[in-house]
Computed example of a mutant assay.
Amino acid sequence: MDVRFGRELKRWRENRGYTQTQLARAVPISQSHVSAIERGAKRTTEEQVLRFDAVLSANGQLIRRWEDSRKSPSGFASWFAGVTVTERESREIREYSPLLIPGLFQTERYARASFRTGRPDDTEAEIESRVKARMERQEILEGERPPIIRAVVEEAVLKRPIGGREVMVEQLERLLLLSQRPRVRVLVVPMAADSNPGQDGGFLLFTVPEKGVVAFVETKVSGMPSDGPEVVDVYAHVFTDLCSVALPPGASQELIRENLSMMQNEWKKSSYSEGGATNCVECRTDSDRALVRDTRHREAGHLAFPLAEWRAFLRAAHAL
């Protein structure tokens, strides 16, 4: 697999102290070409592999890894050309994302914040390169005939303020807007769901005309694509089960709106005492509820009251 070879190339390059630009000059190819090979977005040639191996003094190890990657062992899809390329060829993309907003829907600031959190050892330049690549992937959404995209996310993803409240407001606004497109469907698995078929983690299913379906599971250290019928069937069934426990499109959009409203509605101090006392509380509204918490112990959570009852309480208090 070119994805695995790309990771191996990057490991050797970094261990030898080369930048992408330095390696590109030595081969010679462009820096963007090296970057694309390392991401698995472009294939490489035998001649280039021989040069990579020689420049990085890999003693044939890169050549052997490249040859192994072409054999497509263990059911790996021989035609899979990396996430970026395969996305562009896909007629349909199905994704289950339990921890983050799906990459195709992320805003630039949300993507940057998620990379900084998930890859603390990366340099700023590396993070910016990843953000740029992610934004370039999203170009398929604006094509004349974009792929059909069906995404399932957990409700917790909508509540987790990656990058802070302002970044998350922008992100939820974009997610809501995209979910209303005719070729995009976003379903949310509510936290109150009795069961969750996706407990083993996130995955993607790409359907490519005249090639088939490939399942792709990515972790911090590896990406595993497979077009083996048994593997694809397992993930296809899991995705179907996830859709059955998720809220329908209209209800999912409403839940996104509710979480957007919560993010937009900041906590405001409701009362305080003079003379240095610290028995202050702060409030904000959330749909049909009023949320109240102690300013000294924000991490302890909040109390929730029906909004009508809270307003009645305030009117009574002001009347005293």
Results as ranks from 00 to 15, higher is better:
Val245Trp: 03
Ala215Asp: 04
Asp241Asn: 11
Ser35His: 08
Ala312Gly: 14
Ser72Leu: 07
Ala125Gly: 06
Ser35Pro: 03
Asn265Pro: 06
Glu124Gln: 10
Glu218Thr: 01
Arg160Trp: 14
Val167Lys: 10
Leu320Asp: 15
Gly60Arg: 01
Val83Ser: 09
Arg70Val: 09
Ser69Leu: 11
Trp79Met: 06
Val188Arg: 00
Leu187Phe: 03
Pro28Trp: 05
Gln264Asp: 12
Pro248Gln: 11
Val214Cys: 09
Pro73Phe: 02
Phe313Val: 15
Arg284Gln: 15
Arg289Val: 13
Glu254Phe: 14
Arg94Trp: 09
Val234Cys: 04
Glu142Ser: 08
Ser114Asn: 09
Arg160Phe: 07
Arg289Met: 11
Ser69Asp: 14
Ala36Glu: 11
Val238His: 03
Arg315Ser: 15
Arg134Ala: 04
Ala312Leu: 13
Gln106Phe: 08
Trp310Gly: 03
Glu67Thr: 13
Phe203Trp: 00
Glu87Ala: 10
Arg134Asp: 08
Val85Trp: 10
Thr123Lys: 07
Ala246Met: 02
Ile162Asp: 00
Trp66Cys: 06
Phe115Ile: 13
Lys220His: 06
Gly301Ala: 02
Phe5Thr: 00
Arg289Asn: 12
Phe80Lys: 01
Ala36Val: 04
Arg174Pro: 05
Ser30Met: 08
Gln171Cys: 09
Ser287Lys: 13
Leu176Thr: 07
Val169Arg: 14
Val152Asp: 00
Glu92Leu: 07
Val188Asp: 00
Leu9Met: 02
Glu218Phe: 00
Leu176Tyr: 14
Cys280Gln: 15
Ser244Ala: 12
Glu67Asn: 14
